[in-house]
């Protein structure tokens, strides 16, 4: 590797990450702005956070969002893991092509289409729109992401472990819970977290499928943004960003550490002969 190319690499990384992070940083900094004008620095203050705590509508929306997120992420994790197992294990069955199509399509399908079509289904079926329609909608959207994450874990899973369990007298369903699930658990957990944050994040699909009493945080934020930029939005955003960032970083550090420890142990055994 010669000097010019690595200089080029460093520059592109620095600019790339600056581009990704500076806007978020600005957003966070201005959430502590005393001034009501978002772009004029009026000194440090936490007043927007205080106001936020007293805004019942936002607290309600946050609560709805969290409940929707936990429920839909959990359903999506179960369904998505099942779908990943099917795609990984059953190479031939009637309708496999359709199945894999239904699993991958929502990944790229524009949200306006998914949102609108699901809404029309709820109306056609006479299903009242509200909390549960959003949960179903988010489950449907996020199970595909879970399926992709779990599937990538299953690809590296050694099938002979399952065969060994069967061979030792463990029936298939029990084998799944004793052997397969514990070993793909990091993928399943990552899938759950991804599903949860996607649900937390979704505006379009929730807007189409929501009903009375089921205003989620993104819907609330969106309506606030439409009315104008206020530091209060920066404050909510900062809280959301910090919660998710801390969660993701802790999870990745934990999984990284267990991997490092494992590697160390392996190396020690190798050196010991």
């Amino acid at each position: 590797m010669n000097k010019t190319t690595s200089w080029f690499n460093v520059t592109s990384l620095v600019f790339g990450f600056a581009f990704l992070y500076v806007p978020i940083l600005i957003l966070v900094v201005y959430s502590f702005n005393a001034s009501k004008l978002v772009t004029v620095w009026g000194g440090f203050s936490a007043r927007w956070y205080v106001e936020l705590v007293h805004d019942q509508a936002i607290i309600d929306a946050a609560w709805v969002t969290i409940r929707v997120g936990i429920l839909s992420a959990s359903f999506a994790t179960v369904l998505g893991t099942m779908a990943a197992l099917v795609l990984d294990r059953y190479s031939k069955f009637h309708g496999r092509a359709l199945f894999s199509g239904m699993v991958y399509a929502p990944l790229v399908m524009p949200e306006v289409i998914t949102g609108l079509s699901l809404l029309l289904l709820f109306v056609a079926a006479g299903f009242d729109r509200g909390f549960w329609s959003v949960v179903i909608a988010h489950t449907t959207l996020t199970m595909c992401f879970v399926a992709v994450v779990v599937q990538s874990r299953l690809i590296t899973f050694d099938r002979s472990l399952e065969e060994a369990a069967l061979d030792l007298g463990c029936p298939p369903v029990k084998t799944f819970f004793l052997i397969t699930l514990p070993l793909i658990l990091p993928g399943v957990v990552a899938g759950w977290m991804l599903a949860f944050t996607l649900s937390l994040d979704d505006l379009v699909i929730a807007s189409f499928n929501t009903g009375p009493g089921a205003t989620t945080l993104p819907i609330k934020i969106y309506s606030m943004v439409r009315l104008g930029v206020t530091p209060e939005i920066n404050a909510i955003s900062t809280i959301l960003i910090s919660v998710i960032a801390v969660g993701v970083i802790v999870a990745s550090v934990l999984s990284h550490r267990s991997e490092v420890e494992r590697e160390k142990a392996e190396r020690a055994v190798f050196l010991a002969g």
């Binding site: 990704l20 806007p23 944050t197 993104p218 943004v225 960003i241 960032a245």
Partner: peptide
């Protein structure tokens, strides 16, 4: 760590990330 750094913003809200640009790009913005 770099992969993590690319994924991290993706985990934070899409809406918020778009919103962040309003303050930057507005005529009286940053």
């Amino acid at each position: 760590a770099l992969v993590m750094a690319v994924i991290l913003p993706f985990w934070t809200s899409f809406l918020i990330r778009v919103y962040a640009w309003i303050g930057i790009l507005k005529p009286e913005g940053l």
